[in-house]
Amino acid sequence: MAYEVPQLPYSFDALEPYVSTMTMDCHYNGHHKAYVNNLNKALADHPDLAAKSPEELIRNLSAVPENIRTAVRNNGGGHVNHSMFWKMMAPRAGGEPSGKLLEQLKATFGSFAEFQAKFEAAGLARFGSGWVWLVRVPSGGLEITSTANQDNPLMEGSYPVLGCDVWEHAYYLKYQFRRGDWLKAFWNVVNWPEIERRFEAKEA
Rank of each mutant, 00 (worst) to 15 (best):
3 Y>C: 13
4 E>H: 08
5 V>W: 01
6 P>C: 07
8 L>I: 06
8 L>D: 08
9 P>V: 06
10 Y>T: 06
11 S>Y: 08
13 D>S: 15
13 D>Y: 15
14 A>M: 11
17 P>V: 07
17 P>T: 08
18 Y>F: 14
20 S>W: 04
20 S>H: 12
25 D>Y: 09
25 D>W: 03
27 H>T: 13
29 N>D: 03
35 Y>I: 04
35 Y>E: 02
37 N>Y: 01
40 N>Y: 01
42 A>H: 00
43 L>Y: 09
44 A>I: 03
47 P>F: 08
49 L>F: 12
49 L>H: 09
50 A>E: 12
50 A>I: 10
51 A>N: 15
53 S>W: 10
55 E>F: 08
55 E>W: 04
55 E>Q: 13
56 E>L: 15
57 L>R: 14
61 L>Y: 13
67 N>P: 00
69 R>N: 00
71 A>K: 01
72 V>R: 02
73 R>P: 00
74 N>K: 06
77 G>W: 02
77 G>D: 08
79 H>P: 01
83 S>R: 14
83 S>F: 07
85 F>D: 14
86 W>I: 15
89 M>C: 14
90 A>K: 09
92 R>C: 12
93 A>H: 01
93 A>V: 02
94 G>T: 06
95 G>D: 07
96 E>S: 10
97 P>N: 08
99 G>T: 08
101 L>H: 07
104 Q>W: 01
105 L>V: 03
107 A>T: 02
107 A>R: 07
107 A>N: 08
108 T>W: 06
109 F>V: 00
110 G>M: 08
110 G>A: 08
110 G>C: 10
111 S>R: 04
113 A>T: 11
114 E>W: 01
115 F>L: 06
117 A>I: 01
117 A>T: 04
121 A>T: 10
122 A>W: 04
122 A>Q: 11
123 G>C: 03
124 L>F: 07
124 L>P: 03
125 A>F: 04
127 F>H: 13
127 F>Q: 15
128 G>F: 06
135 V>F: 05
136 R>A: 04
136 R>K: 15
138 P>R: 03
139 S>Y: 00
141 G>D: 13
143 E>P: 01
145 T>A: 10
146 S>F: 07
